[in-house]
Design a binder for these strands. Structure first.
Length: 496
RNA sequence: GGCGCAUUGGUGUAGUUGGUUAACACGCUGCCCUCUCAAGGCAGAGAUCACGGGUUCGAGUCCCGUAUGCGCUACCA
């Protein structure tokens, strides 16, 4: 039997990194076992679902390279099937009509309401399933329904017994029926609810393994009851440890902002492979401990049983732009930037430069060799794709800014420097064969003649040519920028 | 309140059926390299393995309890 797994997000916002990791693990497992990875959009909450969110989910998956098989499924399109299943359960006496008038709740008071009600049940010794309509006669139920009285459909959970399943990650799980309420299958307006829809769709899609966040374990018990009531085979379950905020609280957009959104990483210049690699290491570790892992290695080494049980903290510091996200993610991205094949980096840098109007078609054509050489030189100290258009601007445009601190430190500090740089410009201009070696020889000679340290001219040149105080070896920069631009920039009066 | 899950340095993780100085990565400190900054190399700081009992010759590893955190407990998903 081929493995069939699914990623089933609800399109109620951006793609959360926790969800992205669930998608990744599902995808990895599918690839590992030669199975299928399916996508289902759980849009049954019409009020909150948006098309934009669906788009962002699809974009996010594509960005991470998590291609899905078969047609994506919109859960809302299956509502009729969900209703039919509920009605069948009703007809079989496995579910019942609840005529209790619907109580309006909103997100703000629902949590408190839940706690209050639970407490009341506990103090009054009430069973969570003590619904007055649970034992209503079929005749009266039918009659009242026919009469137009609104009702919700609830699953009739047996009084005695327990559900159990073997979680691939957490081991054997069981739950007493008394802990499970008679869950609502259909709202009084006929709208099918989450647990019903999920089960019907998973059956329909022939899902063999359900891999999802640990926050679903209680739902799993309810869903098993549904599988059993429907006489369907129960899939294998694997729950994933949650990803927490630095204070070990829930990671949420409301509280933590864009750092939890996958698209942020794309927009801030992450390499997809790097972020995917980082995400894979949250809650899972390869057997040998090697951390820099290609997709193929990830697929090869991945196993559900190696996922561990404690939640992972996503370590970032709010209000600190230098540590806006997890340091290790940043490090890993830099590692990818400087070690991946430069040809593979090219299209990504191309997109980045293009977005900043720094791209020229020659870079991919006549100047391709120069461009690749330049990328290879400057990427050594970059962390994200953004750096190519920001810190790297001077390599692709004559219109770049001078860093004030660099100007002060490398140019203004020595009064004779301005004159010396002009001498250097003249010498460089006079070189018949301008390259790394001849430029270095010329500069060192000027320094020697003036009895100053070469470093003075080197650092001054760096700031004149790139506007910065840091960067690659200066002679490499001369070579990359070429004779004409090097001389021009040395003669520029702009920074002074 | 109830039920469930978790707990190894700041963070991510290793720690095989209990057995030497608790390992790796990120981050941090110092040194080397050097024209700067990175990268790289070297060295180092940082963990009484949440706490308390117990079993054992011996426990991060097994058992019990406590604490803390998180999740769920909706006619949300």
């Amino acid at each position: 039997m081929t493995t069939r797994v699914r990623f089933a997000p609800s399109p109620t916002g951006y793609l959360h990194i926790g969800a992205a990791r669930s998608a990744l693990f599902n995808w990895l497992y599918a690839k590992k076992t030669g199975g299928k990875f399916l996508l289902r959009i759980e849009d049954t909450d019409l009020q909150r679902s948006t098309e934009e969110s669906t788009r962002s989910i699809i974009e996010g998956l594509a960005w991470l390279g998590l291609n899905f098989d078969e047609e994506m499924v919109f859960q809302s399109a299956n509502a009729d099937k969900h209703r039919a299943a509920a009605n069948q359960l009703l007809a079989e006496g496995k579910a019942y009509r609840d005529f209790t008038p619907k109580r309006e709740r909103d997100d703000a008071n629902v949590k408190q309401g839940v706690v209050d009600r639970a407490r009341a049940h506990a103090t009054e010794g009430l069973d969570a399933r003590s619904n007055p309509y649970r034992e209503l006669s079929k005749e009266e139920s039918d009659w009242r329904a026919k009469d137009g009285e609104p009702y919700a459909v609830r699953l009739k959970v047996a009084r005695e017994g327990q559900t159990q399943f073997e979680d691939v990650v957490y081991g054997p799980q069981q739950r007493d029926y008394s802990e499970i309420e008679d869950l609502v299958l259909l709202r009084s307006d006929g709208h099918p609810l989450y647990n019903l829809s999920v089960v019907i769709d998973d059956i329909e899609m022939k899902i063999t393994h359900v891999i999802r966040g640990q926050d679903h374990v209680t739902n799993t018990h309810k869903q098993i009851l549904l599988y059993q009531a429907l006489g369907a085979a129960v899939p294998v379950f694997a729950h994933l440890p949650l990803i927490l905020a630095p204070n070990k609280g829930k990671l949420s957009k409301r509280k933590h902002g864009e750092v939890v959104s996958l698209t942020t990483y794309r927009d801030r210049g992450f390499i997809p492979a790097a972020f995917r690699n980082f995400l894979a290491l949250l809650g899972w570790a390869p057997p040998e401990g090697k951390e820099m892992l290609s997709v193929d290695e990830l697929v090869d080494l991945f196993s559900l049983t190696a996922i561990h049980r404690s939640p992972a903290v996503f370590n970032f510091q709010e209000n600190d732009p230098r540590h806006w996200t997890d340091e290790k993610a940043l490090w890993m991205n830099a590692e990818y930037v400087r070690t991946m094949p430069v040809e593979e980096l090219l299209p990504m840098v191309k997109a980045e430069l293009r977005a900043n109007k720094l791209w020229r078609e020659e870079y991919d054509d006549d100047d391709r060799v120069w461009f690749l050489k330049t990328l290879d030189l400057i990427r050594q100290r970059y962390h994200t794709l953004k750096d190519f258009s920001a810190q790297g601007r001077a390599y692709f445009s004559d219109d770049f800014d001078f860093d004030e601190a660099a100007v002060n430190k490398n140019l203004r500090k020595d009064p004779q420097l301005r004159e010396l740089l002009q001498t250097l410009a003249a010498r460089l201009e006079a070189l018949a064969d301008f390259n790394l070696e001849t430029a270095e020889a010329a500069l060192r000679q000027v320094a020697e003649e003036a009895a100053v340290k070469a470093g003075l001219l080197i650092n001054g040149s760096r700031t004149m040519l790139t506007g910065q105080s840091v960067g690659p070896s200066m002679f490499e920069v001369f070579d990359i920028l070429g004779q004409k631009r090097s001389v021009e920039r040395l003669r520029s009066g702009v920074p002074w």
